[in-house]
Design a protein around this nucleic acid. Structure first.
Lengths: 137, 137
DNA sequence: CTATTACATTAGATATATTCTAACTTTTCA
DNA sequence: TGAAAAGTTAGAATATATCTAATGTAATAG
């Protein structure tokens, strides 16, 4: 996604395309490895313009609310974020904790009996085990 | 699971069955709603014996390492725990954040091509959407 | 074009969650 | 029995996230 596309997607979500917000979005497009808020903050601030920590958190929250970014569900303390480009599942390494993308495939929905009145929006798989690096030890 | 079964499962994992560790395990068997560490700590301490926060965290970590408890992958700051009784998937409400159990069913494994050298230990499904309460608003 | 208002950003303080430290207690077992 | 291992503890330290209140910036009604 290029600069204009980022700008358009922000504006069509009712968010102004500020330098700080743009930077968060661009960083996420560029780093597919599910960075933490701290990593995003640091990465964004290594370049211009300076952005405060509060702004980074505010913008992440706004972007998640707008559906442009998703927060990845992992155990552990630091939230991890993901620009919603392509759909994918996740693999989490038991040993080193890294979060990797896995190719997307459809997963059967639960029986409507067990679903009740709940409304399912999406359905995500999390694999656990050993990543390539940790498996070879 | 009764008292003796908890004791046996602890000991067969090489963990002593201390009062504090037993209490954490019993609390988790009794509260299927994926309590946070803080809730477990509070719940355990409302009864005898007193257990410190550090011990609660230590014991949770030991139990997870031993495979008797799993940490549920949810976004948000506080870790949530789950005694591995029956297998189940999870439903997370977009609106109120509650985590509910969903009936277990088998999920197709990823293609070995996309898996590479990774070793999959388990495979967990997370549904997102609106829970029964939030859907009716 | 300016004033008003809503949106955004900031530094730093605060709140929350988890882990660490170092002393102490209990259990195990040679 | 007594040395080593395992467990517990209070409180300090660290990590993560949010709040506050002052300030800045952009959109737009007049």
């Amino acid at each position: 996604m290029d600069a204009e596309a980022i700008q358009r997607s922000l504006e069509s979500s009712g968010l102004r395309c500020t330098a700080q917000r743009y930077a968060v979005m661009a960083f996420l497009m560029d780093h597919k490895g599910h960075p933490t808020a701290a990593e995003i903050f640091e990465g964004v601030n290594r370049l211009d313009p300076r952005s405060s920590r509060a702004t980074t958190y505010n913008n992440l929250r706004d972007l998640v609310k707008a559906g442009l970014v998703s927060e990845v569900a992992v155990e552990g303390r630091a939230g991890r974020f993901d620009a919603k480009g392509t759909r994918h599942h996740h693999f989490i390494c038991d040993r080193c904790g890294s979060v990797e993308d896995m190719e997307w495939y459809n997963v059967p929905k639960p029986a409507s009996r067990s679903l009740g009145k709940r409304v399912v929006r999406e359905c995500q798989l999390i694999f656990r085990g050993l990543c390539t690096k940790c498996a070879s030890r």
